[in-house]
Design a protein around this nucleic acid. Structure first.
Lengths: 126, 126
DNA sequence: CAGGATCCAGGGAGATACTG
DNA sequence: CAGTATCTCCCTGGATCCTG
């Protein structure tokens, strides 16, 4: 059985990671976990750099995986909103933790690709 | 200021996500967070499907980002071990949460690309 | 043992244009 | 408004071979 401290030999993390991480995916989940339901256009507005195609792709994939619920009103203009399913809400804690780490590292002066200030001076000393 | 519940407009999650998620990266971090230090070959053994090149790439990137510490004994044969830095240990909670979700979803019959059992019967009913 | 160097193929991201 | 349909390009993962 999978005991605490078990390695990743046959551990179930891999497929889950594939489903919830990856470019944009985690950001979408974070947005939906802090505020929902959100409409398609609202999600676009929260992530200015994403394209409609990629957002659609990610949402479809998350929906397929039972993580996100899509609700569609067939009015004109159409109104579609997204929210986490009950299963998707299992991710709340993980997303919150990730967010906290992000805030902390930012406050500590972490720079993507360069690390923390200490790392940078250590590098400069060489 | 970044307040709690803030969206991802200029929020610091993106670069952090890039650094800690992605194929293999999170799995490596999980292994190092449950058991360390680990040698290069031990990491390989824990992730049979990874190639040496990718493992090296990921470790270098994590090292560059100040998340993983590389310790090298210049003996023959060489012995190199990896562990999380103190900053890297900030990820413990997030990794644990992710792992718990993975175990839960697995127990609930979640299938990558198909979702949960309920989703699958709902789909079959159409 | 722990890698560095190359080469290659595939897929995902992005831009653009169109639609119910 | 909320997509869909293509097309291209680049990046990443994987395989193979070589080395301190």
């Amino acid at each position: 059985m999978a005991t605490v401290g078990s390695s990743c030999l046959g551990c179930p993390m891999d497929p889950v990671l594939k489903a919830v991480t990856g470019r944009w995916t985690t950001t979408i989940l974070w947005n939906l976990s802090t505020e929902s339901p959100l409409r398609f256009g609202e999600l676009m507005g929260l992530m200015p750099a994403i394209s409609a195609k990629v957002l659609t792709d990610r949402l479809r994939m998350l929906e397929q995986n039972g993580i996100v619920l899509r609700t569609q009103k067939s009015t004109i203009p159409p109104e579609v909103s997204y929210e986490l399913t009950t299963h998707g809400q299992d991710l709340h804690q993980a997303l919150r933790s990730l967010h906290e780490v992000a805030l902390k590292w930012n406050a500590e002066g972490w720079v993507p690709g360069q690390g923390f200030p200490e790392d940078q001076v250590a590098r400069a000393a060489e």
